[in-house]
């Protein structure tokens, strides 16, 4: 058995958002989670609950997940008001039940944002993120065009900072946590990653203008600098990148006005 060495199991009460599909009205339903091992991951706990539901002939709770190792960005549940739960720098799939206590009552909700429609229970549609990337979150470098990799040195500091931003897994917790359901942290991370590199310079302005326009068009809110996004981010991406994107956007807009 695992690290805590504890065999003490626990019982929890779950208030789970259930919603049949995009159009349906949803509601909270209460379930008991019994004999939960603290070494289980949160999703394994839900697996156990679902097995019970199936054996009772009730439809299991739908939730998104894939890699279960904190990197694909597909999982995401708001647990007691915190996207990905109480532990910092941790995705829902990497959260373990030892973060909770016997007798806890947990409220499980999907990401809530106009731009992320709920499609079932705890699953949402994050297609808006892909569309934002399609609107400029790339470097145009068609296959075959590339110069020798070491022909353009990149200062280590810049490469490291770009990597800090590039660590984003696109889970959408930033949107879920933001009081305005703003996608600024996601967009800023992508724009900063590319704008920090020499390869990203030619499209710097186009990129940020295109992505922000798409972001607004998708119906995300604006940034009021609360900082909730960075607190929820499982990859601890800093809101400094939002300032960086603001700067890039102001510059690009002014250039556009005066060109």
């Amino acid at each position: 058995m695992g690290g805590t060495g504890s065999d003490q199991t626990m019982n929890l009460t779950l208030n789970v958002w259930r919603q049949k599909n995009r159009r349906a009205e949803g509601e909270f339903v209460t379930y008991e989670a019994k004999d939960i091992n603290p070494d289980m991951s949160f999703l394994e706990m839900l697996d156990v609950v679902n097995e019970h539901l199936i054996s009772r002939g009730e439809e299991p709770i739908a939730f998104d997940h894939d890699c279960r190792e904190g990197i694909c960005g597909q999982c995401g549940i708001v647990i007691n008001g915190s996207p990905h739960g109480p532990r910092g720098a941790t995705t829902t799939c990497q959260l373990h039940m030892r973060s909770f206590h016997n007798g806890d009552v947990l409220t499980l909700e999907p990401w809530r944002a106009n731009a992320f429609p709920v499609i079932k229970d705890l699953m949402v549609d994050r297609g808006a993120f892909d569309r934002i990337v399609a609107a400029g979150g790339f470097i145009t470098a068609p296959t075959g065009n590339a110069p020798e990799a070491n022909s353009v040195p990149v200062p280590k500091e810049n490469a490291d900072l770009a990597m800090d931003a590039a660590a984003c897994i696109g889970c959408g917790a930033c949107v879920a946590a933001c009081p305005n359901a703003s996608a600024m942290l996601f967009v800023a991370a992508k724009a900063s990653h590319l704008n920090l590199l020499p390869q990203g310079q030619p499209e710097r302005s186009r990129r940020v203008l295109g992505m922000v326009e798409r972001m607004d068009g998708e119906g995300f809110g604006g940034c009021t600098n609360h900082g909730e996004c960075e607190a929820a981010c499982p990859k601890e991406i800093s809101i400094k990148f939002i300032a960086r994107m603001n700067r890039d956007h102001h510059k690009a807009s002014l250039l556009r006005i005066f060109s």
């Binding site: 470097i139 070491n150 040195p153 990149v154 990597m163 390869q199």
Partner: peptide, 20 residues
């Protein structure tokens, strides 16, 4: 592949001199 990925902006680890 490495050339292609670098030109797409893949932030590979680098040395202080800026090389890969």
């Amino acid at each position: 592949i490495i050339d292609q990925c670098v030109s797409q902006g893949v932030p590979f680890a680098r040395e202080y001199g800026g090389l890969l």
